[in-house]
């Protein structure tokens, strides 16, 4: 399958290139970047030295491909998507511009009205664990946000099972590494400012709130923190239960949802130093690890989920969705298990 990447000079673009260059059924033909046009892709992604001779081309020089991965910033994709769709093939959009089904949420969360709301009907929310059948045959796949992907995978089975009291909000406390801010994220991510910090950067109103509510059906109150890490998201969701449950019931719910899923693992072990999900050991892998605890004192369940934000939170999930859409084995090109220690 012939592939191109639009906007390949950022961290998500680089992770896509790393995966696509080693995928046995994909031939990466073009990578675009207006700011780096003409330069070798290894200038932006030195880990790819000796794996490719590709050079960045301007967006306007992209030829039609069988799959186009779009890794441009939010609010840019929504204007140019008709042009990319007209080239044919499958488009996988890694921006937020086609995630929300309700166009009225775009002014609230992204500050602009959506110029092509008809595409929000056409797009599929590209989380295979929830929308596998819709992804098959789709030509517009919208990749989830990183914090959203982790949180949705932990919360959705609990809400769908009826165990959670959805008359009360679910409080989500998310921590993310600096790469989630992108390669051009400004002074907040410079080393002197970021190193050693534990910063509450979005106490309320985080953009991913909208897609978590859309995909779980729960009312979400989320706070997001920047922590001392390059990769990783750890999401901790606090939900109140309708009635007391025991741990075996939670195991049953998660096994029913994810027992046959290739990239979701339930991590809730009795002993050891890695009893609950931890993003660090997932670096470079496409896994989402989910754990839980019960607080009998307050009738609360605490659901935690960990991912690599650039993998299951971006490029890895995008390739997983493409594998589904194209009829390839779902795990193809995504078998790397992560590193330990790291």
């Amino acid at each position: 399958m012939r592939a191109s990447v639009v906007g390949g000079s950022g961290y998500v673009g680089g992770e896509l290139l790393r995966l696509l260059l080693r995928h046995p059924r994909i031939e990466l033909e073009q990578v675009s970047s207006d700011s780096m046009a003409g330069k070798a892709v290894t200038r932006a992604h030195p880990n790819l030295r000796r794996t490719t001779d590709l050079r960045f081309v301007p967006h306007g020089e992209l030829k039609p491909a069988e799959v186009t991965f779009v890794a441009v910033p939010h609010r840019e994709s929504m204007h140019r998507m008709p042009e990319w769709l007209a080239r044919g093939g499958i488009v996988v959009d890694l921006s937020a511009d086609h995630r929300l089904k309700d166009p009225s949420l775009y002014p609230q969360y992204y500050g602009v009205a959506h110029p092509h709301p008809e595409l929000l009907v056409r797009s599929v929310y590209g989380l295979p664990e929830l929308h596998r059948e819709e992804i098959r045959g789709s030509s517009l796949i919208s990749n989830p946000g990183c914090i959203a992907a982790a949180t949705i995978l932990a919360l959705r089975p609990l809400v769908a099972s009826g165990l959670v009291d959805t008359d009360r909000p679910v409080v989500v406390d998310a921590k993310s590494g600096s790469s989630a801010g992108g390669s051009d994220s400004g002074p907040a991510s410079s080393h002197p400012e970021r190193s050693g910090s534990m910063r509450l950067y979005a106490p309320a109103g985080h953009r991913h709130t909208a897609e978590i509510e859309q995909e779980t059906g729960a009312k979400i109150g989320m706070s997001a923190h920047a922590v001392e890490a390059v990769r990783g998201v750890l999401s901790t969701s606090h939900a109140f239960l309708r009635a007391p449950v025991d741990e075996k019931e939670i195991w049953r719910v998660y096994r029913a949802a994810y027992g046959s899923e290739p990239f979701v693992r339930i991590v809730h072990e009795a002993d050891g130093i890695h009893r609950e999900p931890e993003p660090k050991v997932l670096s470079g892998s496409n896994y989402c690890d989910i754990g839980f605890a019960l607080d009998v004192h307050t009738g609360r369940i605490i659901a935690t989920s960990a991912i690599d934000n650039l993998m299951k939170g971006a490029a890895g999930n995008a390739l997983q969705a493409l594998n589904v859409a194209a009829g390839f084995p779902e795990t193809m090109g995504l078998e790397f298990p992560g590193l330990h220690p790291i």
Binding site: E247, K248, W251, H268, G272
Partner: peptide
């Protein structure tokens, strides 16, 4: 008995200790 996972111990002997593959309980 901790998480209800299916555990296989037919090839073991009484008194043998092993971890549950799901929750790690001994």
């Amino acid at each position: 008995p901790a998480c209800d996972a299916h555990v296989e111990c037919a090839a073991m002997v009484a008194g043998e200790i092993f971890p549950c593959t799901d929750c790690g309980t001994e």
